[in-house]
Nucleic acid binder design. Sequence first.
DNA 1: ACTGCGCGCTAACACTGCTTGCATAGTAAA
DNA 2: TTTACTATGCAAGCAGTGTTAGCGCGCAGT
Lengths: 232, 232
Amino acid sequence: MTITRRERLRTATVSEIKEGARRLLVSGGPQAVSLRAIARDMGMTAPAIYRYFPSLEALIKALADDLIDELAATVTAAGEAAGDDPTAQLGAMARGFRRWSIEHPVEFGLIFGTPNPAFGDLQAECGPEDPGARFGRPYLATFLRLWERSPWPTPPRELMEAHLGPHLEPLWLSQGELPIEVAYTFLSGWSRLYGLVAMEVFNQLRWAVTEPEALFEVELAMFLIQLGAAPD
Amino acid sequence: MTITRRERLRTATVSEIKEGARRLLVSGGPQAVSLRAIARDMGMTAPAIYRYFPSLEALIKALADDLIDELAATVTAAGEAAGDDPTAQLGAMARGFRRWSIEHPVEFGLIFGTPNPAFGDLQAECGPEDPGARFGRPYLATFLRLWERSPWPTPPRELMEAHLGPHLEPLWLSQGELPIEVAYTFLSGWSRLYGLVAMEVFNQLRWAVTEPEALFEVELAMFLIQLGAAPD
DNA sequence: ACTGCGCGCTAACACTGCTTGCATAGTAAA
DNA sequence: TTTACTATGCAAGCAGTGTTAGCGCGCAGT
């Protein structure tokens, strides 16, 4: 079970390749990520990379996986740094998500943007360990804690169970049983957070708003109030 | 001012090129759109296309522009077919947006997805005739009609003017003066619509929901009720 | 009839992902 | 220590890409 020298070198090389890929991604966009460029940057030749990844697509996929973990860790840390109040935690996590996304727009695009068939359909497999599930878990956990402490108003339970209930099996499977009110509020909140941040990162709001942060803060405040937080 | 034969042929060729590009885009994703493939499909050679577009990037941009117009027309038509009630119109326009997006996922990605630097920063220019503005206008007009007929509850006006007001100049510029309540509700609603549809098209919901339409309908109903529509 | 512009072609350059075959260096067993 | 093996790198090459340069043909206007 000891780690041999070769394994150590190998994982180091794998990391170096992914780092190079990310550097190129950030500096030149997705099109700039080429095997030959990565290899050139690390003083290798392109075919050598095939000893570590079966294809460029697989490399990008591995990189995207790392990025999801990085984002999830950032969001979780933001929540933990926000004290004990679950609504404060949710606010901090939402802001953490937005901040990371704005500071890493190209990485955001890789994770949450157009699923490029050539860059691999990152959403092909969707078992309980789907990237989305890994990323949504901390949010869901916080919603659940808040719900158990003090429920908030939602649409009538029967209505949600009739319309939404039959289509939530994947969620139950990956996150365990949850009150449907929590599931609905999470999905609603997550789609609103995603929409606002994606529009900002993808420059889809510039024609209307100069400072998307203002809109974000208003929306966040409204959402948290709906969850029972005290207004500002 | 008459249209010469040459001009007629030229615009026909331009259309044929864009049609070929779209065909390739739909069948093989963004990566499949290559000058040589387009030219091959229409019995030409690649360099000939440079007589019509200065680069592949410009071609894609022109195509995206056409697609935005197609989508805007679809949405407007859906609204007009929904009768006189503005809330019904808004519902129909939202459903129209979702339907077109789902039926044309790759085109949706080109318009609203990751702004690929290599495919042109479609959001670089943002005057009053920005694509987003052209697309948002029909929605805004309908929101305004509804507001004048019967306002709905919103956050306090002073609060919105303090936080949002200073950052809405582009919106005023492109759409004229509007009550800030209308501007806010439009932006909020548009980001929610975008978020939900983008997540569905980009397969970002499959880990949680099998039938995103159900979630969409619930959210739409909640939003319209908030606007004063009668619940189902 | 002649001039010029519009348009399409071939050839070429500099890239890309990926495969094949060969050499080398490090590891592990005899 | 010697032998066998495996992991890793390389050069060469294939098929494809966007783009440029230069040539030639034919339609359009004078």
